[in-house]
């Protein structure tokens, strides 16, 4: 028997304004392997993460599902929360009920809630089959390459070099300076651009 906890986020009114979030959490309780489900205004916030950690300990959870926004935004946040709860960070699965539900189905609240439940079910089924994964270590060459010797490249190269690292600055023209060297005085201070 797996022990999955499901945490459904309101994202303020971003999700909560469209999806019936408490109903999604209630539905999750009936899904296989789910031993705990709840909802909260902002799952990514400190109290939201604490909620996950506390529930993981109290209910002896071995995997976590968060239904909230895109993994691009908060997958790392919740992986870290899972880790703080004593789980392998990859024993976590995310269901995107914001970009994939509330933002695109704002006019159909009932259907949106149904879709959110379906997506949570998907995540729960996958979560039941998750395996712990482990990061490996790789070395680093402590040197940077900057491509382009205009004001952006010069500034970046100087900052990196000042921090004590070697920098290779490559410019295709015979001189560095780029467009900025062509300019006269520059706004708003009207100082020279050399």
């Amino acid at each position: 028997m797996k022990r999955i906890g499901v945490f459904v986020c309101w994202c303020g009114s971003n999700i909560g304004g469209v999806v019936d979030v408490p109903r999604v959490a209630e539905a999750a309780k009936e899904m296989p392997n789910v031993v705990f489900a709840t909802d909260y205004k902002y799952m990514c916030s400190e109290p939201g993460q604490e909620l996950i950690i506390k529930a993981a300990k109290e209910h002896n959870l071995d995997r976590v599902v968060v239904a909230s926004c895109s993994p691009r935004l908060h997958e790392q946040t919740f992986r870290k929360a899972a880790e703080r709860a004593g789980l392998n960070p990859y024993m976590f699965e995310m269901a995107n009920i914001r970009e994939h539900v509330s933002w695109v189905h704002a006019q159909e609240k009932e259907k949106a809630t149904e879709k959110a439940i379906e997506l949570v079910r998907r995540a729960v089924f996958k979560a039941a089959r998750l395996e712990p994964l482990y990061k490996s270590a790789i070395g680093i060459t402590k040197k940077a390459l900057v491509i382009g010797g205009g004001i952006a490249g010069i500034q970046a190269a100087l900052d990196i070099a000042d921090a004590g690292f070697q920098v290779i600055l490559v410019e295709k023209e015979p001189t560095i300076g780029g467009k900025m060297a062509q300019l006269d005085k520059t706004f708003p201070t009207l100082d020279c651009s050399s």
Binding site: I138, A161, V167, I168, S194
Partner: peptide, 30 residues
């Protein structure tokens, strides 16, 4: 501009282009 050319940690290649990059974060070969 002059500061970049004079910096002991900056190696400047002008009239030059990067033609090949392989490898990955922390370990690129160019």
């Amino acid at each position: 501009m002059a500061a970049a050319a004079q910096h002991p940690n900056i190696k400047l290649y002008t009239y030059a282009e990067v033609t090949e990059v392989s490898g990955y974060i922390g370990n690129f070969e160019i």
